[in-house]
Amino acid sequence: MGLYSYLLISIIIFTIGVYGIITQRSGIKILMCIELLLNSANLNLVAFSSYNGNSTGQVFALFSIAIAAAEAAIGFAILVALFRLRDTINLDNINILRW
């Protein structure tokens, strides 16, 4: 498996993520899709890092994972709070700031 196989997988995961974000209406699903985007990027980082023989990319991937964890925690906390308030996490129904 060369670099291209990793990049291919990464592209596939990324596309799934984007597709999910655009089509899904559930907040949880969207958050999960965002995780997919981040992880595809992480995969790219690691792949290039290994290909170039330079560990900087892997370090960045670690950072990225840590941030993703924080982001997920905050995101889900928001969704829990939202659910308590509005009894829904369907983003179509959350639009009171619209005109």
């Binding site: 974000i21 983003l91 639009n95 619209r98 005109w99």
Partner: peptide
């Protein structure tokens, strides 16, 4: 009107 309020 461009601001639909829909995240997607």
């Amino acid at each position: 009107k461009l601001q639909t309020g829909v995240v997607q």
